[in-house]
Design a binder for these strands. Sequence first.
DNA 1: ATTAGCAGTCATGCCGGTAGAGTGCTAAAA
DNA 2: TTTTAGCACTCTACCGGCATGACTGCTAAT
Lengths: 355, 355
Amino acid sequence: MTANPIVVTQPELTPRQQKILGLIVQAYINTATPVSSKFIQEMGDLGVSSATIRNEMATLEALGFLTHPHTSAGRVPTDKGYRYFVEKLIGDVELPQAERNMIRHQFHQAKLEMSQWMQLAAAILARSARSAALVTAPKLENPRLRHLELLSTQSQLVLLVVVFQGGIVRQRYITVKEPITQSTLSQIAAKFNSVGHNLEVASLKTKLTDLSEFEEEVLNVLIELASEADDLPLNEIYRDGLTEVLQEPEFVSRDEANTLVSAFEQPAFLNKVINAPVGTVQVVIGGEGQWRELSACSMVLARYGVEGFATGALGVLGPTRMPYGRAIGTVRYVADLMSDLVSELYVDDAASVDN
Amino acid sequence: MTANPIVVTQPELTPRQQKILGLIVQAYINTATPVSSKFIQEMGDLGVSSATIRNEMATLEALGFLTHPHTSAGRVPTDKGYRYFVEKLIGDVELPQAERNMIRHQFHQAKLEMSQWMQLAAAILARSARSAALVTAPKLENPRLRHLELLSTQSQLVLLVVVFQGGIVRQRYITVKEPITQSTLSQIAAKFNSVGHNLEVASLKTKLTDLSEFEEEVLNVLIELASEADDLPLNEIYRDGLTEVLQEPEFVSRDEANTLVSAFEQPAFLNKVINAPVGTVQVVIGGEGQWRELSACSMVLARYGVEGFATGALGVLGPTRMPYGRAIGTVRYVADLMSDLVSELYVDDAASVDN
DNA sequence: ATTAGCAGTCATGCCGGTAGAGTGCTAAAA
DNA sequence: TTTTAGCACTCTACCGGCATGACTGCTAAT
C-alpha cells in the first residue's frame, strides 16, 4: 500500500473521499450501472447520510475522478478515477495461495512445450481477469546457433533447419540454381556447426570467410531467421476469452465491440510493453491518450522471460470497468511463472555455454 | 451449368421463376434489404408488370424459396432459395483470368514458407469473398521420418527435433531421470536415422527392437508428434477478415455477431470438410441443420493438398447473404493453388523415396 | 459539518397518430 | 388463361407527448 513512484502529483483526498471513491469504483465494476449516493450509503458503513455522500461525490466530480452520464444518474468513475483507484486504493493484488497453486499445477501438468504454456497462460488470464487475454511467444534476443541441418529435397530445393540455443527451431526452404548433393550439404552444415556452435548468429559473418554463393545465402537466411524482428508474426500470438468479454455490457454498442475485436486481432498496443523491464506490470486505462479508439478499454500488460535473452509479452484487454485487482494479480503471477519456465527451459542451457 | 448430382429432387421452376429468384437473391446479396416486386421489374428486363412479378413471388414463397419479414416488406431468400441459387442458377464461378493472375503472383512473391502461404490465402479469401477466412495447416497423413536430432540441454532435459518427409519440423523436450551425454544421444539419433529413414513412423515400432527405456520414450514422442491427431491445434489455423465481416448489417444484432466470433475462434465446422475429397467445394447454407447456432451464416469450404499425403482445409464464413459466386470461385482457385504448392514442396520429395 | 426535504432534471417506456413501402386481391383487359 | 391496373390493407419506422421513477443539487435547519 506504499505510494507508487509512478504517480504524478495528484490532489490529496481525505480518507472518507478515498473510501467513497473506492466503493464507487468497485460497485461500478461489479454492477456496470452508475452508482447512486444511496447505494454507497447502504454498502459502505460510513455512518453518514446520503446527502453527505452526495456532497463528497460532487467534490470528487469537481476534482475529475467521477462523472455523470446525465443529471439524474448515479456516478461513474473517469479514467482518472480508475487510475487513482489502481495506484492508491487497490491494496493487495497478490492472488490467494490456493489460486496460485491451482495455476501452477496446471502448468506442471502440461507438456514441456512453449506453445502449450502460452495457450494455457492465455486461458488462465482470460478466466481470472474476465477479459480477453493475449500472450506472445518469447523472442530470442541474441540467438546463438545450436545446430544447423541442411536437407536436400528436390533438385532445386534445400530445406534449412536451424536450432537456436534454447531449443527454438526454425525452418526455411531455399531455392538453388544448381542441384547440390546431400553430402555437400552435410559438409556445409558441419562447417557452420563447428565454427558457429554457441555463437551469436550475427558474429558468424566475421568468423566464416571464403563462402560460396550458396553458403552466403545460408548465412543470410540464418541471420534473417534469427532476427525476425520485422513484425511479431501474427501466428505467434495466443489468444483467449474474446467471446466472453464481448458479453460485457459496454460492448452492446457495435462500434465498441468492433474496436475491441480489431485491437484483439492486431494488438499494436503490445509494443507499449515491449520495452518495459521484465517483472513490472503496466496498467493502461481507457487507451490513455495513445490509442484513441480504445477509449472504452483498459489493458494490464507485462513482459516475461529473461532479460537480454528471451522475452515475450502477455496481458489482458477488457473494458475500463475491469476487475483491476484480479487482473493485475493474475498477470503478475502468470508472467512470473512464464519467466520461470523460460529460464528453466532456455537459460540454464545457455549458461552451459560458459563451461 | 450442368445439373449438380448432389441436388435432391426439387420442384421444377419455370424459366421466368428461375430468373426472378436469381434476381432476388442477387439483389438481396447486394443491398441487404428485402427486395420488392417493383425493384425486380426495374432491374431485370422481363417485360412484365410488377403485379405479375408479385404473383410469381407469391408462388416462389409458397414453394419455400422466399419469405417475408412482414406483410408489407419485400421478399428475402430462404436457405432453400439460396441453395437453389447456388446449385442451379449461379452459372460461371471461375474467377476472371486477371484476378487469378494477381493471386498467383502474390503467392510467387511470398517466401517459400507454408505459414506465409496460409496467411496469404486467408487474406485473399477474406478480401475476395467479403467474408471471414480460415486456413488450416496441411496435416501429414502417414509421415515418414526424414531426420531426427537429439540435443542435450540441461542435465535433465533432452530436446528432440524431428524433420518429417516434406520438411515439417516438430520439436519436444523430454525429461530424463539420468543425464545422458550428447555423444550417446547422437548415437541414438543415428540409430533411428539409419533404421527409420524414409519409413512411416508407425512402422518404426516393429523395425526397432531392444530399446532402452529412453529410446522407447523417444519412439513414443515421435509417434505422438507424427499423429498429433488429437485436435487440430488451434494455433495452426490462420484467420483473416473477421472485423470486416462484422460490419455486415446482419451482425448489428449482438447475438449474431457473437456466434460468428465464436465460430471463427472455434471452427468446429471445419470437420465437416475434413473427410471430403480434395478438389470439391462445399457450400453450407445457414448452418444447414447441423450447426443450429450458425443459422445466420454460410460457409464455403474446401480441402486442399495431396490426398493420402498431406491435406488441410480452408474456407470462408460469412452471412447467408454471401456473394456465393465469388466465394466459390475464390475458394476453389485458392485451394487448387495451395494444392499445387503442397505438391511442389512436399510430394516430389516423397516420390524420391522410391529411388 | 451534517442532514432532511424538496424541487429540478433526465432517461425510459408507453401510447397514438402519421407516413411510406409493399403486398394481396379483384376485376378488367389481352 | 395470363397479365395488368388499381385499390384496400398491413405493418414498420418515426415522432411528439406524457407519465414514471431515479438521482442529484440546493437550501435551510440542526
